[in-house]
Structure formats: structure tokens, C-alpha cells
């Protein structure tokens, strides 16, 4: 049985048994080669569920901010590695009650980035995408091309160190479908660190200078759930609202620090950005910084304390001790 069929069966069973009131997964979207989040309450609708390279949305976002629409309900979810880590992180931070969710891990081989799909098709609109495993076939009006899978995967997936769920009540299929790209993740950060201060500044400004201040990155982020975001506070106003680099960079730097040790690098921010900012540039850097300093990563273990809320005597304190 395919993972997709197993997922449908599992969701159907959970709903029929009454173990959950609602199941969140993905269904076919209205655009070619797309999947969108779906909220299922009727077991008969479980057949709408799909799982493939198009299932990018991180469903953990629906448990935070003013989307706490499931309060009191028991919810089942299909989770990729990053999605599960975001759920675990939110459970650790007491945003989600563990006993109210049934987490179903699905084996992830990465999700596509629509921008990279367009790029792989030389800017032409892809009307059909078939997954051939290590390659994908892209076709549209007057073209039919094959591209390596890596050419269309989201950057977050290309450098994903944890493709499988960190915690799951049930895991469908066999974990380990995707090669651990932790090395590549580290290399990306090292490349950025190796730049001279002037080059690093140039690279950073080039990237974050594209920002149009729509805050889509913040809103799709499962870890961004401050009751009032600092950019929305206007008495006093903490940050200017322009797209000048002083303002945009302050926004991104503060957001980075707010999600330090909490960001699971799912890449939802980068995929949602209408201006094409590579938001993982700093998020990944901060995640590696946290890993090297504290030896931990976000969302790996439910019993653990949130990394930035914990203190151990053996932590590096060179900034105090000199």
C-alpha cells in the first residue's frame, strides 16, 4: 500500500473511532502541481488526502497565533520531519497539548519550491509534474522536460538534516527516504561565515533588501506567535515601516533572534515570500550557532526544555568571563 493510501486509511480510522475530531493533511490544490491544507471531519472525505512532493505547507502553523481554531478539539495530523519538529517545539512551549494531537509521520523526500519549478522550466508555466524519483518530468504548453529532483526542491529540503518526524504516534512507510543533507546545511552556513565582513554585509543586504514588509514569513511561521508582534506595536513604535535596509534588516534580525533555538528550518517563510528573499540565510546560521553552543536543535524531543529557556553550568560564557 502506498503511503498516500496508508495515510487515508489512518485518517479515516482515527475519525471513525472518534480518536480525533479533525484531521489536517493536504489535498490537491486548484493550481497545477499543487497541494493545499485540508481540514477533514467526515471519515468519507479521507480519500481527499494526498502526500507527495507538492505538500509544502507546514500544518503546525494552524495551532498558533489567532488560528487557535482547534482549541478543545482532538486533531490528527500528517507531518513531515520539519512539521513534526514544529509541533514538538510548540508542545514544549505549551502552545499545543500533547494529548490533544495524534501525530502521523510521513516519509519525506523534500517538497518543491514553485520558483525553482519555474526556473527549471525556463520560466514557462508547468501544467503537469510527475515525480520519477530522482528526477521530475515537467510539462506545459509546447514543452516536456526532465529535471533532476534537486533542481526543483525547496532550499530548506536540499539542506535538511531531519527529513523524518522527530516524534510520531505512528510512522507510515519507511523512514530515511531522503538522504541526510546535514553536511550541506553546515556547508551553507560555513560559506556565509567565511565571507569577509564587507562581503557578508553585501550578501545580507542583497537578500534582505528585497523585502517588501508584507510579513508573510512571520505569518506562515509556526514559531511566530507573539500576541502582538513587535512590528505591529505602535505605542511606542519599535521599528520603522519602510523598505529601507535599516528597517527591513532590523525586522529580520529581531525575528531571527526571536526564533533562535525554535526555528526548525522548514522553509515555509522562504517559500511564502512574495519577494523571493532567501530567509534561511540567517535562520540556518542561527540554528547552527545554537547547535554548536548548546548541542541541541529545535523540536527534537518533547520532554526537553526549550533551548533558550534552559541553563547549564557548563555553557560557554566567554562573553561574561572574557
Amino acid at each position: 500500500m502506498s503511503v498516500e493510501m496508508e495515510l487515508r486509511a489512518a485518517a479515516c480510522r482515527l475519525l471513525e473511532e472518534g480518536t480525533v475530531d479533525l484531521f489536517i493533511g493536504w489535498e490537491r490544490g486548484s493550481l497545477p502541481a499543487s497541494a493545499v491544507p485540508v481540514f477533514i471531519t467526515d471519515p468519507a472525505d479521507a480519500d481527499r488526502l494526498v502526500f507527495d512532493i507538492t505538500c509544502g505547507t507546514n500544518p503546525a502553523v494552524y495551532f498558533t497565533k489567532d488560528h487557535r481554531q482547534f482549541d478543545g478539539k482532538r486533531v490528527g495530523l500528517a507531518l513531515k520531519g520539519c512539521d513534526s519538529r514544529a509541533m514538538v517545539q510548540n508542545i514544549m512551549e505549551k502552545q499545543v497539548e500533547r494529548e490533544k494531537v495524534v501525530m502521523i509521520g510521513v516519509p519525506c523526500r523534500g517538497v518543491l519550491d514553485r520558483r525553482r519549478v519555474a526556473l527549471a522550466a525556463d520560466g514557462r508555466e508547468v501544467l503537469e509534474l510527475s515525480d520519477l524519483g530522482d528526477a521530475v518530468r515537467l510539462s506545459g504548453r509546447g514543452f516536456d522536460v526532465e529535471a533532476p529532483r534537486e533542481a526543483i526542491l525547496a532550499d530548506s529540503c536540499l539542506a535538511c538534516a531531519h527529513p523524518d518526524a522527530s516524534v510520531a504516534d505512528l510512522f507510515l512507510g519507511a523512514p530515511g527516504g531522503m538522504e541526510d543533507a546535514g553536511e550541506r546545511r553546515l556547508r551553507r552556513v560555513r560559506e556565509y561565515e567565511a565571507l569577509s565582513p564587507a562581503e557578508r554585509w553585501e550578501r545580507t543586504v542583497l537578500e534582505y533588501g528585497k523585502c517588501i514588509r508584507c510579513y508573510a514569513c512571520r505569518n506562515v511561521c509556526p514559531s511566530c506567535y507573539c500576541e502582538v508582534c513587535f512590528v505591529d506595536q505602535n505605542d511606542p513604535r519599535w521599528i520603522g515601516g519602510t523598505c529601507e535596509i535599516t528597517d527591513t534588516l532590523i525586522f529580520h534580525l529581531i525575528r531571527n533572534l526571536h526564533v533562535a533555538g525554535r526555528c526548525v528550518e522548514c522553509g515555509a517563510c522562504a517559500r511564502a515570500c512574495p519577494a523571493g528573499v532567501d530567509l534561511l540565510l540567517l535562520n540556518r546560521k542561527v540554528a547552527i550557532e545554537v547547535l554548536e553552543r548548546f548541542g541541541e536543535e529545535a523540536g527534537m524531543e518533547i520532554g526537553a526544555k526549550p533551548i533558550m529557556a534552559d541553563f547549564r553550568e557548563d555553557e560557554k560564557q566567554e562573553f561574561i568571563m572574557g
Binding site: 493545499v36 481540514f39 494552524y62 481554531q69 508584507c214 505569518n219 520603522g240 515570500c273
Partner: peptide
Amino acid sequence: AAPCVNCGACTFACPTCHCFDVQDE
């Protein structure tokens, strides 16, 4: 409205959405 995360990307990409905020610095 259920799936919407209020990210606002639609309104920023839209050619006709024109609401603005006035801020003093």
C-alpha cells in the same frame, strides 16, 4: 477562511489592493 494564515502576500502582490498606513518618524 480556515486555511488562510493572514500572511497578506495576496494583498501585497495584488495590482489593485491599495490600503496604506501613515507613520510618523
